[in-house]
């Protein structure tokens, strides 16, 4: 059982190609997965020596390319990134714990395994570990999905993905032989495939995330509904970004609202987004927004124990959007 630590991407890809080895970034989730028997021990290719995967590059159009090994903390704390992409920075600053945010990486966060307590208990087999059923569906799925996309009922675990999906960000993926492909972040996930949490093979490495040019004066908020105040996986979470007209001074010209904790994949809510066009910062959003929120129930297909998430989804989105708008409800 070996761990190698190559210093260039090419070597890493060679070591990963067809060897059964696993790529590792911060290692926070991988370590837990091996400890809990989610993953059998396997050789590891530690990517943290590859400096080219680290850091934030700025392009001429003002857009950013964030290296996959950039820590979640760095994304949340980088001043320029925070100004250009406030929804990303706020989202990154709200997940896990301060210690984990400093170790965990953007790439690793996107490709982590879900938190289902059946998956992470070695006493159970499920679709994800080679079994043929979902014990959570028949069992205790209090924290499960409310939009039922397929056999597995574990909500998507990546909070960073919400923000990136809200920006229509693109991941760069390097595969066998150094082939580089780009795909939308949303394309990393297939909610109908119960056997895995993302579609990449172990021989593929996410090298960077590309964001579009920033919108001036963007309003943003991230909010998660939890029992405790901090450091808890969300029951429902929302990232809202509102792009304003008139170069950032006017009403909302376009909106992007992504939610997590509700489905196997991060979800965008186009009906809510379109209802926000014309909303005025500081004011209560209009009747169209309220109607769109009420319409969310029609998207939901709750499990026996997740019916509460129908209302919680509506209220979390409402509160998140209002926070982004700067509207404070009494």
């Amino acid at each position: 059982m070996t761990t190698t630590r190559p210093t260039d991407l090419g070597s890493a890809l060679t070591e990963l190609a067809g060897t059964g080895a696993r790529p590792r970034a911060g290692g926070t989730d991988l370590t837990a997965c091996v400890a809990h028997g989610v993953l059998a021990p396997a050789p590891v290719v530690d990517l943290t020596g590859i400096e080219t995967l680290r850091g934030i590059d700025w392009r001429d159009d003002g857009s950013a390319r964030v290296g996959a090994l950039t820590s979640v903390h760095e994304v949340s704390a980088d001043p320029r990134l925070g100004a250009a992409y406030p929804a990303l920075a706020r989202t990154a600053g709200a997940l896990a714990t301060p210690q984990i945010r400093r170790t965990a990486t953007v790439g690793g966060n996107l490709l982590q395994r879900n938190r289902c307590w059946y998956l992470r208990n070695p006493a159970f087999d499920c679709f994800q570990t080679g079994g043929g059923s979902c014990p959570a569906r028949e069992g205790d799925h209090l924290h499960g999905v409310v939009v039922d996309q397929g056999p597995c009922v574990a909500p998507h675990p990546s909070t960073v993905a919400l923000a990136l999906v809200a920006y229509d960000a693109v991941v760069e993926v390097s595969g066998d032989g150094g082939a580089v492909a780009e795909r939308p972040v949303a394309g990393l996930y297939d909610g109908t495939d119960p056997s895995r949490d993302h579609v990449l093979d172990p021989s593929e490495v996410v090298t960077a995330v590309s964001l579009p040019a920033p919108a001036p004066g963007e309003l943003a908020a991230y909010l998660r509904a939890t029992g405790r105040s901090r450091s808890e996986w969300p029951l429902v979470e929302v990232t809202a970004r509102l792009v304003r007209a008139e170069g950032g001074a006017g009403p909302v010209a376009s909106a992007a609202v992504a939610v997590g904790g509700v489905a196997r994949t991060p979800l965008r809510l186009p009906e809510v987004e379109s209802s926000l066009v014309g909303a005025v910062p500081g004011a209560e959003p209009g009747a169209g927004f309220a109607a769109a929120l009420d319409g969310l129930a029609a998207r939901c297909s709750p499990l026996p124990a997740t019916g509460y998430k129908v209302a919680l989804l509506r209220e979390t989105v409402r509160a998140g959007v209002e926070r982004a708008l700067g509207f404070a409800r009494a």
Binding site: T28, D46, Q99
Partner: peptide
């Protein structure tokens, strides 16, 4: 500050 229980020894 880093949680050493999730940091691989290697």
């Amino acid at each position: 500050p880093t949680v050493s229980c999730l940091l691989p020894a290697d």
